[in-house]
Design a protein around this nucleic acid. Structure first.
Length: 480
RNA sequence: CGGGGUGUAGCGCAGUUUGGCUAGCGUACGUGCUUUGGGAGCAUGGGGCCGGGGGUUCGAAUCCCUUCACCCCGACCA
């Protein structure tokens, strides 16, 4: 990647050993974030936030389409509420931040800055749910949460982050399970059609599941350095919170019953995933559907008559056609602009100069393949829109091919170790399902279970590590 | 929390070992002219509590003590 500021060009590739350096450089140079004074809290600048706004817009439409409504609950959670569900509080206590003073007085009860909203939402649900007629409750909220993390990294693990959290209440276990799976599928479809990212979906192990859930589903994506990133989760909470918070309803049969619940979420972490799946040695590559600028127009030889005028014409034409387009009129050389927009990942660059105007064409440069060709100015808006779709498909296909190249099966421990030491990526292997075994694998290799995929294959009879009878095929990987 | 490293102009750094002239370089920024199809050229200008505090000294970016912040590797983390 071309670096500014040191007087010469230095190249860093995403596959190199200093992947994490590449990652922070891309974010910084694409002008997505700045760093605040508060440990691990980032300032998301306009360009980075523009991406989040598009993610929000697309995700929100899907959440509403599946019957959910948005609501908002308080930022502060009284201590006793957080402590109501035993497993939940144990899971979140180490990363909780507290407000203990209000005005100048010490509070009688400390208030937790929400690390997640299950407890405060459930405390309301217990009032709202009385009868089977009140069910299901299907709510979602967009908000920020705070977790006091020991080490942070922009987008992947920040103390404060923005997310969407859905919380639902149902009459039956089956209905809750269907909801949990439905939202996981929504996430998967979103990843594919909006982020151009292939994800694996499946179930988390007992050790990796959400604190307070019966079981947790996840979508996992493979990054360019061979590590896996959890991109979204969907939890079946069973009756754990219902019992803790007394969420009961009077059923048709006249009996009082505890409700069944789910929760599911996706966060700004997805932006980190985007960067680490699609980036290259020139910087960011944005999938068109989340690109704040989909097409940038760079006029060449602006001082020549008619060039700027033509560029402005094209700008309006594309804008009216619904393309997120920007005209770069800054007083810089064209080459400088080319590099900057490539760094920022803009999918299409349109170049227009005197020569093109004479030939009734313009140049279109694609960020995904770096191809640059002349296209007729006639129906240029349609050409651009079609190209945006094609870029999306190409990026998805590239990411999928990368994942497949970096997924391998291990039938025994030797193959498992060999795979981890020599290749990077996802290991598919049979596993006994026991937490003790899982912990030993982590200790020996640094690799953890990512998910038990819904699409199971029989790779053998026994656990790849301990040799006990295998219960499932599991995906293992190093993770963020 | 352990181990290692870094704090000097917006950004990237040199200078610290061996204390000494007015604290430098690149880039970015301002102005003027010429340029413009892959990071333009010349001229000129502005910008610094050398992370903070305390010491040693005639004199400290440099040595000593202390403190804060950030980065990397572990550990921790849904």
């Amino acid at each position: 990647m071309a670096k500014q500021n040191d007087g010469f060009v230095q190249h860093i590739t995403p596959q190199a050993e200093d992947f994490s350096r590449w990652y922070t450089d891309v974010i910084k140079m694409a002008d997505m974030v700045d760093y605040s004074d508060v440990k691990g809290c980032m300032v998301i600048k306009q360009y980075g936030y523009g991406i989040w706004e598009l993610i929000q817009q697309e995700m929100d439409a899907r959440i509403k389409e599946t019957g959910h409504k948005n609501a908002y609950f308080p930022l502060l959670i009284p201590k006793h509420l957080l402590e109501t569900e035993a497993e939940h509080v144990e899971g979140f206590a180490p990363e909780a931040a507290w407000v203990t003073i209000g005005g100048n007085e010490e509070l009688a009860e400390p208030l937790c800055i929400r690390p997640t909203s299950e407890s405060i939402i459930c405390s309301m649900y217990s009032k709202w749910v009385q009868s089977y007629r009140d069910l299901p409750v299907l709510l979602n909220q967009w908000c920020n949460v705070l977790r006091w993390e020991k080490s942070t990294r922009p987008f992947l693990r920040t103390s404060e982050f923005l997310w969407q959290e859905g919380h639902t209440v149902h009459m039956t276990q089956q209905e809750a399970e269907e909801e949990t799976l439905k939202m996981l599928r929504v996430y998967q479809e979103f990843a594919k059609n909006v982020l151009a990212m292939p994800v694996l979906i499946g179930q988390k192990s007992e050790k990796e599941k959400f604190a307070g859930a019966d079981h947790t589903y996840t979508m996992e994506a493979l990054m360019l350095d061979g590590k896996a990133l959890q991109m979204g989760t969907s939890h079946n909470l069973g009756q754990n919170f219902a019992k803790g918070f007394d969420i009961q309803f009077l059923d048709k049969d006249g009996k009082k019953k505890y409700a069944w619940q789910t929760s599911w979420g996706t966060s700004t972490r997805m932006i980190g995933g985007l960067i680490m799946v699609h980036g290259d040695e020139r910087g960011l590559r944005l999938p068109p559907r989340v690109a704040p600028v989909q097409c940038v127009i760079v006029p060449v030889a602006v001082h020549k008559e008619g060039v700027l005028q033509k560029a402005q014409e094209l700008f309006l034409q594309l804008k009216h056609a619904g393309v997120r387009v920007e005209l770069d009129e800054r007083d810089q050389s064209p080459g400088w602009k080319f590099n900057e927009w490539e760094l920022k990942g803009v999918p299409i660059r349109l170049e227009i100069g005197p020569r093109d105007i004479e030939n009734k064409v313009c140049m279109l440069a694609r960020r995904d393949t770096c191809a640059k060709d002349a296209y007729s100015l006639e129906n240029i808006d349609r050409t651009v829109i079609e190209m945006l779709d094609d870029i999306h498909e190409t990026m998805y296909t590239q990411a999928l091919a990368f994942r497949e190249e970096h997924t391998y099966d291990a039938k025994n421990w030797d193959e498992f170790m060999q795979g981890i030491e020599q290749k990077h990526g996802l290991v598919r292997a049979m596993w006994c399902g026991e937490t003790a075994c899982e912990e030993q694998i982590k200790e020996k290799t640094g690799v953890t279970t990512r998910c038990k995929p819904f699409e199971q294959e029989d790779l053998g009879e026994v656990c790849v590590h301990c040799g006990k009878p295998a219960k499932q095929m599991m995906i293992f990987a190093k993770s963020y």
